[in-house]
């Protein structure tokens, strides 16, 4: 998923405004950011026949990253620690159903979980989009609704939150 990670970061932002939007989005994308570097270095493999992303996207790796993020923000209190850890952890349920391959339990475990909806996700659905696209669109819509509805509570005017939501919705339309 892509736009859904933005939506998750924004939704968490309204729940815990003491963690900035930049760090929250970086944490929501942390496994993907690691994946980019590791793939370029040849440590993780992107060819479908030899797909391997266990260091950045295994269940254990994401749990460890979430724990490290929570520990890094723990000095600011339980709320920020939970938000930081939760932002990383959100990557797990969002990627689990339709990742290119099952998420390994730990790097090089050889076994994993997820990708169970991959076949269904690739099936064509309404308006020329796939089931996977519509699933992500629903997740994006829910996250953006939480952001827009909660924005005023953390001092962000509705118009500004709406502009941010339109940007993320556009990302889903263009790249989802």
């Amino acid at each position: 998923m892509f736009a859904a990670h933005f939506a998750a970061g924004l939704a968490i932002r309204t729940a815990e405004p003491r963690v900035g939007i930049g760090p929250l989005l970086a944490l929501a994308f942390l496994p993907d950011l690691l994946w980019l570097g590791l793939s370029a270095a040849g440590i993780e493999l992107v060819a479908p026949a030899v797909w391997f992303d266990g260091w950045s996207h295994s269940v254990a790796s994401i749990l460890v990253l979430a724990a490290l993020a929570a520990a890094s923000w723990s000095r600011r209190g339980a709320g920020p620690a939970a938000a930081a850890g939760g932002a990383v952890l959100s990557h797990l349920p969002l990627d689990l159903p339709i990742h290119p391959a099952p998420l390994e339990w730990w790097p090089h475990a050889g076994a994993g979980v997820g990708a169970f909806a991959r076949g269904w996700a690739g099936t064509a659905a309404a308006l020329g989009k796939t089931n996977g696209w519509w699933t992500e669109a629903a997740v994006v819509a829910a996250g953006l609704a939480a952001y827009v509805l909660g924005a005023r509570r953390i001092g962000i005017p509705l118009a500004s939150a709406g502009a941010g939501a339109i940007l993320v919705a556009s990302l889903q339309l263009a790249f989802g």
Binding site: F2, F6, L10, G20, I21, G22, L25, A26, F29, D32, L33, L36, G37, S39, A40, G42, L45, V46, A47, G155, I156, P157, A159, S160, A163, G164, L167, V168, L171, F175
Partner: peptide, 30 residues
């Protein structure tokens, strides 16, 4: 294996929207 061009392009797809979202928030708080 991904090239560094691919990495930069994908990185910008995350960084640029995140920067716009941060700017929107920063502008709203002024």
């Amino acid at each position: 294996m991904m090239t560094w061009h691919d990495v930069v392009a994908q990185l910008l797809l995350v960084v640029l929207p995140a920067a716009i979202l941060a700017l929107i928030e920063a502008g709203a708080r002024r």
